[in-house]
Simulated assay, not measured.
Amino acid sequence: MKLKKGDIVARLSYQCDLLFRVVELHPQYVELAGEEMRLLADAPLDDVVIVSEKERAAHEKKAKELIDNSYRLFRQDAKLMKQRGDYDVTSGYKSESNYFELRGRVLHIDGDPLYLRKCTELYNKLGVPVYGVYLHEKEMPEQIGSLLEMVQPDIVVVTGHDAYLKSKGDERDVRAYRHTKYFAECVRIARKHSWNKDELIIFAGACQSHFETLIKAGSNFASSPERVNIHALDPVYIASRISLTSFMDRVSLSDVLRNTITGEKGLGGVETKGVMRRGMPMKYD
């Protein structure tokens, strides 16, 4: 078996449960990035097998079903929020519905260019304004300050790949995680720009990230409470829910987590207000 960068593979020792992309080749092992999950992993060469087109199609079908279900739930909630907005602005439908929405702007910083593309496509599909940037996780703390100044976002997402490495230490030790420390540093820098958790909403983390560290650093939402893998699109659903929720309302933690693919084991947060503002009148060209 001749491996090359970009091949889609699975790990025999994990019963081929997840699909990975080969990102780096070494004489004795390969570096892998999750195809759907935000996980980085190393694997011995003899533990990796190239996935056939048929097996890949089966994995992708299951993944699409999860994505479609989350999208359906999100659209249901968005429709209910729109109906409530119509009711509030028209004083119980007593006047004409003639208003516009200023939805929260997202700065999405991602450590994976393919994931960034998928996430940007979903933001656009959901009608959320986004400015996406690809940066390696180690470079994020150096760049986030200038990006915040340039973009002036309402919501910032700092994500990419992560993993807990048992060989590096105890689960409570942030040094045992590949990239949590970089995500946490980004959060601390962002909080220097805005300490108020309702003025700048922050999501930080990836697969197996040290949740407690990210929350203590100042995140509104983070991964991963149970150190499980999170789906590539989970940060988008959280950021989008906040973007589409009025600043007069608080985001229901149970509702926002329900709409993600991973759920409460992989994602958590603190009470947070929405950032969307309505205005009147609507001007037509």
Rank of each mutant, 00 (worst) to 15 (best):
P235L: 08
R227I: 04
G279I: 08
N220W: 03
L73E: 11
R258D: 12
A206C: 07
K192P: 03
M81V: 08
V256H: 12
V174E: 01
E171N: 00
A33V: 11
S252D: 14
L135A: 13
P153V: 00
S246E: 03
G279D: 04
H193Y: 15
E142P: 00
K118Q: 13
H179S: 13
E185I: 11
L66R: 15
D88H: 07
N196L: 10
L114A: 13
Y14E: 15
P225L: 02
I109E: 03
L257H: 06
K2G: 08
I189S: 02
M282C: 00
K94A: 08
K5V: 15
V51H: 05
C16A: 11
S209K: 06
I242V: 15
T260E: 04
C119A: 15
D255A: 14
A239N: 09
Y123E: 07
S97A: 15
T120D: 02
R117T: 14
V256M: 13
I144W: 04
P141F: 08
L114G: 11
A206R: 08
R258F: 11
Y134C: 10
A58Q: 14
F247S: 10
R175I: 02
H231K: 10
R172D: 03
G127R: 12
I238F: 01
I67W: 04
E149C: 00
